[in-house]
Design a protein around this nucleic acid. Structure first.
Lengths: 122, 122
DNA sequence: TAACAATATACTCCTTGCGGTATATGCCAT
DNA sequence: ATGGCATATACCGCAAGGAGTATATTGTTA
């Protein structure tokens, strides 16, 4: 069942944070790292998990992999992502992620292709 | 995070079916057995899983355990249960469960305390 | 009190998932 | 081609989860 697959993706805190951020728009791995403050391998593996199950898409831009939500999500996925957005509004850690994303926005605008050039590694 | 716990409960097909049925009202274990057509131990263990995580409540009535959704679900749980109801409308297996539940309704009304007396074991 | 019905738990086997370390891959610049 | 950066994958250890079999528990009835 499609629905079970979706919930399997949602039942990890890191993946929830990734999907929540992606609802704001596409992001590359190094931005996830900066926002979540988790090791690269952890983020990369969770993104792979989501990618294999088609909850996210990705596209290469030079050195960077840009991840995004599917262009045409199923009704079930859309419903659950909307529900997640709703629930995230009450949760401090999701809001903290959002705040960090906003801080990154100027950097993302100024440098190419996604602002990753100015990223400092962790 | 409360939300992760909810998704962990939702990420199994059997548990989804249980919760979907409970959205229609309380049920006892033997009715779940009849509707899902799964072995008693499987149903009982999944109900225990949900109970430990407080996604369902239960109450004894003589020999029978009556399970129900929490009287005051958290906002997150309510949102996700509503989302599940929405998604279930498009899914044949959920609808089949619902149909079987309707068939049970007359039996449930006639015998006490929950209609289980007339149940035939499988 | 003994038998029975409904449900729960213990135990085992097997698979999946998560985190970490180390290493590989792909693209770019020199 | 070489080195560096961003990202992915392989491998390991461990914990959790799911299914099945057997058995225990709790309440009812005779």
């Amino acid at each position: 069942m499609e629905l079970v697959k979706i919930y399997q993706c949602l039942c990890d805190r890191t993946r929830l944070r990734l999907l929540h951020l992606l609802s704001q728009g596409p992001l590359c791995v190094c931005h996830f790292q900066e926002i979540l403050r988790e090791p690269q391998v952890k983020i990369s593996k969770h993104l792979a998990y989501l990618r294999e199950r088609e909850l996210v898409q990705c596209e290469r831009q030079a050195n960077w992999m840009i991840y995004a939500l599917p262009a045409k999500p199923s009704r079930e996925l859309a419903a659950n992502l909307a529900c997640l957005q709703d629930c995230a509004q009450e949760d401090a850690s999701f809001q903290r992620d959002l705040a960090r994303l906003k801080k990154l926005a100027p950097k993302m605008a100024e440098s190419s292709p996604c602002g990753c050039a100015t990223t400092t590694r962790g």
